[in-house]
Simulated assay, not measured.
Amino acid sequence: MEHALYRLLDEQRIAYQRFEHPPVFTCEEAARLTPGLPGAETKNLFLCDAKGRSHYLVAVPADAAVDIKALGESLDAKGLRFASPERLKKHLGLEPGSVTLLAAVNDAEGNVNVVVDEVLWAADAILCHPLVNTATLSVPVADLERLLRHSGHPPRILPVPRRA
């Protein structure tokens, strides 16, 4: 799956810098093991509504504490909650710890909505896992937007609500 992603990035002429590292499962681990990478560090959430009909891949700055209830209201998604590992595997082909904006390319059926915090989207580049948590790519935001649109997932950019 990771190799297919690199082929797609190359085919679509998406610029990226690749950095390999030991497996990371949290933003804190990533920051400790990959300090100073060129791009905005992210926290990625895979969420669904109460009935499991709508799914959301949400990217925010790594230090953001998201108010999921308020985000659900912003998205008109009742009962927004974390999706199960089974849903993550089914819709994005990922295991927990590898959630990334780049996984939108795995959602061929268009079941996942991509939401990006406006602060994150204002960065020059965003750091993303290439579908595995043993590497990080720095991708210019303009190229990331092109890739997401190509995959049928134009990002919804909004101020993601924070917990107080």
Rank of each mutant, 00 (worst) to 15 (best):
A123S: 15
E145A: 10
N133F: 06
T26C: 10
F25Y: 14
P35N: 06
R149E: 12
R53F: 05
L75F: 05
A83E: 03
V119H: 13
W121S: 13
R32Q: 14
G39K: 03
S54D: 13
D49Y: 05
G39F: 10
L131R: 07
L147Q: 03
E29T: 01
Y56S: 13
H129M: 12
S98K: 03
T42F: 05
P23I: 11
A142F: 08
V119W: 03
A59R: 02
D117C: 04
L71H: 07
S151Q: 05
A64L: 12
G39S: 07
H55R: 14
R146Y: 03
L131D: 03
V66K: 01
R87F: 10
G110Q: 02
E73D: 15
S138V: 02
A83P: 10
K89E: 15
W121K: 06
A123N: 12
F19E: 11
P61C: 09
G39W: 04
A108L: 08
T134F: 03
P96W: 08
A103M: 02
K78E: 13
G97Q: 02
L80W: 07
P140K: 11
A30I: 00
P35C: 01
V99H: 13
N106W: 00
V132E: 10
A62M: 02
V139N: 06
T134R: 10
P85K: 04
G110D: 08
A50P: 09
A40H: 00
E41W: 08
A125H: 14
Y56F: 15
D107T: 07
F46R: 06
C128R: 07
A59C: 02
A125V: 06
V99W: 07
E109N: 04
L148S: 03
G72M: 05
V66M: 08
K51C: 01
E41L: 06
